[in-house]
Write a protein that binds this DNA or RNA. Structure first.
Lengths: 204, 204
DNA sequence: GTGCAATTGCACAACAGTGTGCAATGTACG
DNA sequence: CGTACATTGCACACTGTTGTGCAATTGCAC
């Protein structure tokens, strides 16, 4: 009577999840990874993947939805109740950091021809939040930049990926990366380096 | 007796150049653009493109070489004889800016599976120069960052593309973009916003 | 063990893109 | 005009990928 799915679908569910996990990693490595590559990497036959997702597009779409949700969650949770713009930005970046690796896939996909119609649209809410935060910081004088808030949001976004890549290439220790990224983002937003460092030390 | 090529090859040369130009733009829009798309965009038949370049790979390779050369040129020219790290970085970014649009293609291609073996390698010299400049600035205290110089180079690079994209999306006026990008890069490197602004005003 | 669902292993059609061959056509130049 | 070259318009073979169909097999649950 417990909500147990019928038959041996538990294995099916596990497979589905694993396929999604592997697909994320595989597509991150190569945005053009074929269904066969993904299937093999997941220890499964291509035909099985089609049993879970009717098309390549559907698979990626599911992936995007999950990533967007994770991002929005982390961001919202981190900034809840924080009023100071600089602190909010710091907390946001620190919280977003662990998800950044997955986030990279979205970029890789969004940068290409719109593989799934409206990736940008689905990310819009998250981005808009960031823009509002930056705008507020600029208005209050906490941030200083010649760029308007929306453009600054682009910059912040790209900086996260730059740091991620630096970690991937072994230029930066993974444990320090989150805090370093945060300091750099704050600095780029015009927060004095000393205050940025202090803020990160205090928050993390 | 002048170095005039035989026959009507001047038209051929013009075609070749136009194909390269169009290919750059087309591949920027869609890194997977087919030879047919490129040919049509250049007002030419696919077969003609193969007349100039034996393969897709060769076409892209030629493109990469040109872009790398343009980048290295602009960078070297801008920094010639400038000793102050902050000023050198400012001049470098300002000079690199007009080429940034083209540079984006390289990234788009480099981020994908190594379409042409060794794009990163060919870019290495340019990047190394930047790393040395950043390192010197950090050593002298002109720059302040928790990131090591090579990682900071990644960040600087990505910031250029972020600003480029901001311009593409109409968030930023193209005329101001170069100076704005420079200020942001300097700021991210830990140069105080006031000094960064003054420096850019003085240099540009 | 029986049954049920997932998974597998093949086979297939459809499609898109690449690279090549060749004859016909166009075009500048002397 | 005639030569030389670039371009065109097919045609072709080859490859890789997608999505589907179906029978056989595996594994879990009861």
């Amino acid at each position: 009577m417990t909500a147990m799915t019928t038959g041996n679908s538990s294995r099916a569910d596990a497979n589905r999840r694993r396929i999604l996990d592997v697909a994320l990693a595989e597509l991150l490595r190569d945005p053009d990874a074929s269904m066969d590559q993904i299937a093999r990497a997941a220890g499964v036959v291509r035909r099985t993947v089609y049993g879970h997702f009717p098309s390549r597009e559907a698979l990626i779409s599911t992936l995007v939805d999950g990533a967007v949700e994770a991002l929005a969650d982390a961001d919202a949770r981190a900034r809840a109740g924080v009023t100071d713009p600089a602190e909010a930005l710091a907390r946001s970046v620190l919280a977003l950091w662990p998800v950044a690796d997955r986030y990279r896939l979205l970029i890789a996909l969004a940068q290409r021809t719109v593989t799934v119609q409206g990736i940008r649209d689905r990310l819009a809410p998250v981005r808009d939040d960031k823009v509002r935060l930056l705008q507020r910081g600029l208005d209050e004088g906490a941030f200083v930049s010649p760029l308007p808030a929306p453009a600054l949001a682009y910059v912040v976004e790209q900086m996260l990926f730059a740091v991620t890549e630096a970690v991937n290439d072994g230029l930066l220790a993974a444990e320090e990366a989150g805090r370093s990224a945060t300091v750099v983002v704050l600095t780029a937003a015009g927060v004095p380096a000393s205050r940025a460092t202090a803020l990160v030390a205090e928050v993390s």
